[in-house]
């Protein structure tokens, strides 16, 4: 069983959803990101998504774009991302990278999968890679035992979901809203329907993200999904109060993960 599946299985035996947290590498600094992630893991985060900062993050809202801009200005390189993976993997939680496609392609698809695996990474989320274009990536990640995570949206057809599930190995990432990342006050009711639709095509865990920021929202999602993904809210917390605030947010989110 892969590290990612172990983390979901553990949460399931505890009758709760897994908490997945996102933070860009190099934000607020290279060491600062690792320190914050350590605090988030202490606070109860099960799986960590490390963002590969990219100049044109079209799927992200203003909070993450601002953090990524700071990270790039700090001089974050691909080597920084791999090093961050190495340090986070040492905390004993599955470390994923979330990356737009161009940086991976530029790094070299096969080399990225190999270096990522060597650093202890568990899986990679590729939001702008379509299954149709994923041939080389599927081969490279399969050879290195790296899990692949693809996204589905509220607008995804059954055909699309089936295609996405076919190339996914880690978990299916279900976007909770039509739009970009960023905290929102409510999570669409339609997302439950999306999760159920995914389950008709796949036995993989399904995690819900985009717009989730509070324990109440987490609790809503935990009733039907296997994982809750929180990103922008962690970035905002760190901006406000550093690692301590990130830990506090993680602790409060864990209170919403229980299945009733």
């Amino acid at each position: 069983m892969s590290k990612i599946h172990e983390a979901f299985a553990k949460a399931k035996t505890e009758n709760r959803a897994a908490l997945i947290a996102y933070l860009p590498a190099g934000y607020p600094s290279e060491a600062g990101a690792v320190e914050c992630i350590a605090a988030m893991v202490e606070g109860g985060v099960d799986i960590v998504e490390i963002g590969f900062p990219y100049s044109d993050p079209v799927m992200d809202g203003p909070t993450i774009q601002a953090a990524v801009d700071i990270s790039l200005k700090n001089g974050t390189k691909s080597a920084t991302v791999i090093e961050t993976v190495r340090q986070v993997a040492a905390f004993g939680v599955p470390a994923l990278v979330m990356s737009y496609w161009n940086p991976i392609e530029r790094y070299g698809v096969t080399k990225f999968a190999a270096d990522f695996h060597a650093a202890g990474g568990a899986g990679v989320i590729t939001p702008d890679l379509t299954p149709e274009e994923a041939g080389e990536w599927v081969t490279a990640t399969s050879n290195e035992d790296v899990d692949r995570v693809f996204l589905v949206a509220l607008s995804s057809s059954d055909e699309r979901i089936s295609k996405v599930s076919g190339v996914t190995t880690g978990f299916v990432y279900a976007g909770a809203v039509m739009g970009v990342t960023g905290a929102r006050t409510s999570v669409s009711d339609a997302v439950q329907g999306l999760v159920e639709k995914v389950r008709r095509h796949s036995d993989l865990p399904v995690a819900v993200g985009l717009g989730v920021s509070t324990p109440e929202q987490a609790n809503e999602i935990a009733q039907y999904a296997d994982g809750v993904i929180v990103g922008s809210a962690f970035v905002s917390a760190i901006e406000r109060g550093g690692a301590a605030a990130a830990k506090e947010l993680a602790v409060s989110l864990t209170k919403g993960l229980g299945k009733s």
């Binding site: 990219y54 100049s55 044109d56 790039l72 390189k77 691909s78 161009n102 940086p103 991976i104 392609e105 530029r106 790094y107």
Partner: peptide, 9 residues
């Protein structure tokens, strides 16, 4: 595309 060695535009 115009990009640096890390694939940044």
């Amino acid at each position: 595309i115009m990009q640096d060695e890390d694939g940044q535009t």
